[in-house]
Computed example of a mutant assay.
Amino acid sequence: MKTLNTLLVDDELSALEGLKLRLDRMDGIHIIDMVTSIDEAIECVKRDVPDLIFLDIQMPGKGGFDLLKQFQPEQHPAIVFVTAFHQYAVRAFEVEAVDYLLKPVRQSRLIEAVERVRARRPDPLYKQQLLTASAALESKDQAGATPSSSYRVEREKLIITDGRNSGQLVPFSEIVWIDAAGDYMCIHTHNETYVMRARLKHLVDTILPPEFVRIHKSTAVNIRYIQHIEALRNSEYRIELTNEKALKVSRTYSAALKTRLFSAQKK
């Protein structure tokens, strides 16, 4: 079994140390360095290109995607992204990352990621795909899309992770409504219900596209699927969705919903 020379890149020293401890339990992994910035990582790869990089995505200054621009196809290492933010999964998939791990990283998922690296590295096409995708992202950045906003620029899919850190990509256009229970959300499409850990306010304010509107402190709907609205007492409303689901609009959110529906109608 070939030893994989491995570079760890994360701005949190504790995260680096934790990852190193887990990797040290595995055979065939040699950690050549641990660095806390992309500039340090660039200097490392200039000296010696590793076989594998565990790379944090969101870092102060230059982000993880900036490191990918340093490599040529014939010497591109395998990339495994490690991050606390699931919304970056879309961009990680765009650059053909071997794997995408959410913090805190489980030992079982780490083993799985390394196995994927070993299975994929002999394929020279991977290096070309990774470089091509990286170049496309660089063009997006030059056009004005920053790494932290690229997920919202795409506005296509919501990443729903499970307990194994795997991800289900659900198109925003298929989500009919969302209801919350504490830190967990139920994401309803016409055919499925998905559960994810998130706050409704964060989803509506920073991730979901504009057609999603809160109608209650624990509920948001896709206004494209509202087919009927009925006035109730105390400035409240009842709405019926295209899947025949009936939901109550609280007084707090009724005015905002009416405004959004009126604006959508004018468009």
Rank of each mutant, 00 (worst) to 15 (best):
T242F: 03
P77W: 04
A256T: 15
I79M: 11
I239T: 04
F81A: 07
Y126P: 05
R164K: 14
F262S: 15
Y151K: 09
A145F: 13
L102Q: 03
V90N: 06
I32H: 11
L261A: 06
I29V: 15
E40P: 07
I215N: 05
I215V: 05
L101T: 00
N222H: 12
L19D: 05
I187P: 00
V35D: 01
F65Q: 03
I42F: 11
H190R: 10
H86V: 13
M1F: 07
L13Y: 15
E240T: 15
G182A: 06
Y88G: 04
L232E: 13
I239V: 08
G28K: 10
K20Q: 15
T132R: 08
F81P: 04
T132M: 06
Q168P: 00
V117P: 00
L21F: 07
S14L: 12
K258I: 11
E138Y: 13
L125P: 00
A246F: 06
I223D: 11
D10Q: 08
V114H: 13
I31F: 01
L19A: 08
F262Y: 10
W177G: 00
V98G: 03
L16V: 03
Y253W: 10
M59R: 02
R22G: 13
S150M: 14
T161C: 00
R197W: 00
V105T: 06
R214D: 02
A181P: 08
K46Q: 15
A180Q: 02
Y88F: 15
H86T: 14
L110K: 03
F81N: 05
M34W: 00
L200A: 06
A136D: 12
D179W: 09
H228C: 07
G28N: 08
V35P: 02
M1A: 11
M34R: 15
P50V: 08
E240R: 14
I29M: 10
A119I: 10
G18L: 03
D179Y: 13
E12L: 07
R47H: 09
I207H: 11
K267C: 09
I79F: 11
E156C: 06
L110Q: 03
P209I: 07
H228D: 05
L208T: 05
I159G: 01
P122H: 09
G144E: 05
V176S: 11
Y88N: 12
L169M: 14
T219H: 06
H188G: 03
P210W: 10
F71T: 15
K20D: 08
D39L: 04
R260L: 06
N191G: 05
K69R: 12
V82A: 01
A41F: 03
T132A: 09
S108T: 03
Q142P: 06
V9M: 04
D123K: 12
F85Y: 14
Q265R: 12
C186T: 14
D162W: 00
K69W: 09
E112H: 11
V204T: 12
T193K: 12
Q128G: 03
A256H: 12
F93W: 01
G18R: 03
K267G: 11
A198N: 15
A92T: 13
L208M: 10
D48F: 09
Y237M: 12
M196Y: 01
R152H: 10
V90Q: 07
R25V: 08
S149I: 07
R121N: 13
Y100F: 15
L131R: 15
S235D: 14
S139F: 08
L23H: 09
L169V: 02
Y194S: 01
A41T: 11
F85Q: 05
E236N: 06
S37V: 00
D179F: 08
